[in-house]
Structure formats: structure tokens, C-alpha cells
Write a protein that binds this DNA or RNA. Sequence first.
DNA 1: CCAGTGATGTGCAAAGTTGCACAGGTGCGC
DNA 2: GCGCACCTGTGCAACTTTGCACATCACTGG
Lengths: 295, 295
Amino acid sequence: MTRMSDFDWDDLRFFLRALETKSLAGAARSLGVEHSTVGRRLSALERSLGAPLVLRGPQGLQLTPLGEKLAPLVHDMGRAAAAVDDLVNAQKATIRLAVPSGFTRIFASTLSQPSAKGLKFSLDILSGARPRDLNKGEADLAIRAAPLADQNLIASKLCEAGFSLYASAAYLSRRPAPADTNDLTGHDIIGYHASLSSAPPSRWLEKHAAGAVLVLRSRDMTDVLGAALSGIGLAVLPCLLGDAEPALTRLTPRVLAKQNLSLVYSREFRTSEPMRAAIGFVRSVVRQNAVLIRG
Amino acid sequence: MTRMSDFDWDDLRFFLRALETKSLAGAARSLGVEHSTVGRRLSALERSLGAPLVLRGPQGLQLTPLGEKLAPLVHDMGRAAAAVDDLVNAQKATIRLAVPSGFTRIFASTLSQPSAKGLKFSLDILSGARPRDLNKGEADLAIRAAPLADQNLIASKLCEAGFSLYASAAYLSRRPAPADTNDLTGHDIIGYHASLSSAPPSRWLEKHAAGAVLVLRSRDMTDVLGAALSGIGLAVLPCLLGDAEPALTRLTPRVLAKQNLSLVYSREFRTSEPMRAAIGFVRSVVRQNAVLIRG
DNA sequence: CCAGTGATGTGCAAAGTTGCACAGGTGCGC
DNA sequence: GCGCACCTGTGCAACTTTGCACATCACTGG
């Protein structure tokens, strides 16, 4: 491990301002502290380094030769610190939005439109099988089905998503479409994982597909979609996903289940301005696409 | 003026160690503080920046995406800090030695010899008209005539310098050499500035050149030497300077005045190892050239 | 010549930071 | 299963740093 500079780095921040203003008092004004503090921090730095950096006089400060040589290095350090600051500020204006499958397309097309210019934040769309953990900082804002009770999180109702029954052309070429979609006895069904059993789609299947054959279960919506496309069975899918697939035939004109979607974000962002703006943006985008989502 | 990063730079030093060791306790050991301090400094940094950097768990620390992005910038800052440290350490091993005219040659030739290799310090020779102010950090060590009483300075006797009377060939072609060097009545004399009136050369002139013509006065020994070479008058010069000039004739075989030279340095360097080594080196060099200096 | 401005240095009380000791959780090996 | 080694979190007393008020010194303009 590399030997470490063991003096107080923050003293260099004072030294940097002091060598810019050439006076303790000027640096103090600029830093918002007392001149005595600047003087003491410089003394502490000189003590740590074991060499004098400035000469103090009634007319201000004068750099020693060593202080002169140190100046560019301290400026480098200042630039690095400013880079840290800039990166953090840019990051704070970036909202990472985790969305369920299907929403990616909606946001991607909206963000590329001219109306998305000039927003006070930048939006990163995250999607994928694994739900992001907001508490671990994997995302800042999420569209979620489950209104899980977490003290650190704030959830607000966003919209209703509609589900319908879909079959691929391949499936329909093997089997006739069910005469009564309320009784799927004898059909092959792509179901959901047990952990989702309380969700509306699962509960609908439990009620109307008791006599059907479960050929596959998955927690991931894109898996279910893929399985349905391959033709191995019927699937209950969000209309947003199913209606967008030309290869799938929607078997129930009316939605057979509804699920509330919520906007979830960490409590610590409650007062964040970019977050409030992003929430408003997400709500407006969802409102514009409400028909597709409700089915 | 450029906007300044207003968080505590020293917190980044803790963050750097924390992201290297991936644990509060490890960073604490490495920094020589308590783990609780590291944790609190990281919390303070996150509060200042307004964004979380690490996730703390029973198995150690895990960087957030922002922390990950910050890592290289903080490493940059660490390198800059290490550069500051290195520069200061190199500086502390450099002794700037201020010498009177004539000594430059002695040290220059000695330093270029192989015996000067492997010294634990590096020597900068400063010379010139203006005496360097040790209190202002213009030099670290000086060979001085005047044993001035300054509480901040330490002076120790170094050697005796001898002075003789010199004339250039040009002068001797106009005038005969003085028959009795103890009475320069009628000769042209290059004297010293009033501020040096108490120095042995000035006092000798005052006594033996009362009837002479003062054609020039100067505080700077090289001015006097140059004037003597130009032939406008006789001059009392250090033998070290005068004997080295082939164009000058020494008129007094025995030295006519002696001056004690001292080694002077700031009290704060009393315990500095490079300083002690440099003092020993200077004394040995002067001892080797004692004959030239005494005249 | 003398007050006014602006610089640094210092003593003291308040505020902040640190070390210490202890609590609580997780993973590993016997 | 249980002890052990490792990690992080927290409360309190001791220490350090800060702000404030005041003193001192140098320059400047009326």
C-alpha cells in the first residue's frame, strides 16, 4: 500500500484561497469563516509539513519559495475537488427510473421527442428482470406494482394497468381458441411464480384456469411474453405488452384483471427538485399513454 | 473567481482509504483513528454532497454507483496530495547556503568532486550583492561577517578571513606602488559604504588612508573588486578574492585586517538532520580552503 | 499630524470532533 | 449449535477547533 500524505487535506483548501487572495482576511471572507481560523489552519499546515509556506505581515501574505512551488500542486488538488463537486451535482440531476417491461418503449419514444428538451433533470431508464432496490441506491424512482410497506420509501398511486389473455398464432394453429375465456380447462397455460400469487393476474388464473395445464411459471414478465410468443401456451399479459406484439392474438376484448401501479422513491429525495420534476414528467407521460396501459 | 467546492477536503482522505480497504475498520486502522471516526466522516461527506457514497453492511462497505464514479477523481486528489508531500520532503533535504563573494567558486568546485556524492542533503549556493534574509526564508544557512543579535538566529564561528591591499596593473602603470603601505596619502582609494564602517577593512582604511582620495564607495564586494580591476584606485579586498585575480597585485604580503566569519541559521532548523549534515560539510570545505581564506 | 482602513495576532467561552466502551449483527469453523 | 472474529452503530466524557472581541501594526488621505 502506498504511503499516505497524513496532513489535513482540508488545510490545503484554506491555503489555496489564501494564496489566491494573498491575505488571511480575504481568504476568510471568501470561505465564510473568521480570519483567525484561516491563520490557525495555515499554521497547522506548516506545522504538519514542517516548513513555512507564507510570511505574514501587516500588508498581507507573502509566499515563501516553497509555498510558491506548492501553488500549482494545490491548484491541481482544487481542480480534482471541483471535479468531484461537479460529478456529484450532475449525478443529483440524474434520476434513474426503474420501469416494468413494456414501459421502456413508452419512455424511450417520449424522451426522443423535442418536448423532452430543456428538462431540469436527466432520466436514465432501467428495466430488466430483477427489481431494483431503491434502498441500495440501484434506482432513484420506480414504477412498481406492489405497494410494499417500507418506512424509507414513499409510494403514490400512478395508474391502473390492464391484463388480457393472449395466444400466439403458433398456439392457435395447434388448438382452437377457447370458446369461453372464463374456463380454460384443457388448455396449456403460462403462469406466474408463486411469489406473485397475490397479484391480480395470478388470482384470475387461479379462478379460471383450474382445469388447465401449467406448462411454465416465471417471475419475469419478459419470460412469460417470450414463452407466449413461442406458442407453448396461453398467457395473461399486460395489455401494454401484449397489444404491442403483432404475433399475439388478444382473446379477451375487455381486460380480465387490473393492477395498481405506484411511483416509489426514497424518502430522502422528498424535497429534491429534480426528483419532483421527474415525478411530474413520469405522470404526464403515463397519462398520455393511459389508453395503452389500461388496455 | 471560480466557485469553490465547499465540502471538507479531508473527508475525501477518509473516503479514499475506505474505498481502498472496503471497510470502516480497515480504513481506521490504516489512518490511525477509530472506526467510528471514519464512519462519521463518511456520513459528514455524504451529508455535504447530498448523496450517498457507500452502503454499510455487516460485511463491510459497498460503493454506490456514485461512489464508484467518484473513486478515480479521489485517487487523483490523493496523487496531488502525495505530490505536495513529496515536494515538501525534497525541499526539506535542500539547504540554501548564502555565501559572500569568492566562496561561490570554492563550493562549486568542491560540489563537483566525487566526494560530494551521496550526501544526505542537496546544497543550493546563493550569492550576490543583497544579503539574504534568513527570517524571510530567502536562505537556510549563511556565511556572515556580522554576528548580528537576532533571537531567531543561531551563529557559530566559522573561520577568519584575511584582507590585503591590491592594485591593478592599470593603476600601477599610472602611479608607483606606495612605498609604505601604512600611509596611502595621495593615492586613490576604493572604499566601503558607511554602513560597513565598523568592519575591519573600513577601520584599517580609516587609519592608514586618511590622506588619500576616496574615488568610490560601495557596499558590494564585487563592485569594489570590479572597480579595482578597472584601475581607478587601490582597494582592500578579501585575499580569497584578490589572490584569485591575476590582474591584481597584492601590495601587502601580510594581511592587514582580519574578519571573523560565522555560520548563521534559523533556530527552527536546530534539530534538522539535513541542516546538521550541511553545517558539517560547510565547515570541512572551509577547513580545506583555510589557507586561501586567511590569505 | 492624526484619524481611518485593512492587515495579522491572541485570549476566552461555545460548539464541534474524537476516542472509548459497549451493543448488535453476520459469517466461519470446530 | 456455539464460540470467535469480523464488521458497523451509538452514547458519553475529554479534547480540539471555532467565532468573537479586542489589541497591534502599517499604510493613506485630509
